[in-house]
Amino acid sequence: MKPNLKQSLIEHLESVRLDDARLDELEALQRTRSARSWWHSRTLQLFAAACLLVALVVSWLPFEQPDLLHAIAEEAVMNHLAQTPLEVHGTTIAELDGHFDQLGFRLVEPLAPAEGARLLGGRYCSLQGVTAAQLRRHDAQGRTQNLYQVPYRPASMGELPDPALGEQPRTLEMRGLRVDLWVERGLLFALTRD
């Protein structure tokens, strides 16, 4: 008498077995791959998380991405040290403004008072390829200061303090000089001093 379908099925399926060699291979695969695969995927996850964290930090701390800003400050310091002769002389911004007709903006009187400082004149200069105004003055002790004005690009320069909002300028030290950086009315100001 023939076995019933279920019995035949069970016998048939039970006869389907992996041989010992194949079982050994699969066990070896599990031993070697379980740790490695997990470590690999965990490493990728950690790497992705680290990249995300860096991106967040960078986006949250715009002051920490001032490559262009540093370059501008460095160039301002170099101009300061070069002491290139002035193109125009005057003691007020209004006097000088007429000379700077190639800037694409009007010179701005800084909000912060330069106590005891005396304006000497100005010249065109270039900061990172952008035409800028370099205004030279002496402070109360006769030390030279250079005030630079250039169009402000927040996307590349990052957020900068605005004295109109009660913020203090950002200060960098370069080549032994102090550079103050801030924004006023759409212009980036850089002040170098001896």
Binding site: M1, K2, P3, N4, L5, K6, S8, E11, H12
Partner: peptide, 9 residues
């Protein structure tokens, strides 16, 4: 209804 079927292996 499968139970009643008989079939050789």
């Amino acid at each position: 209804c499968l139970e009643s079927l008989t079939i050789s292996r």
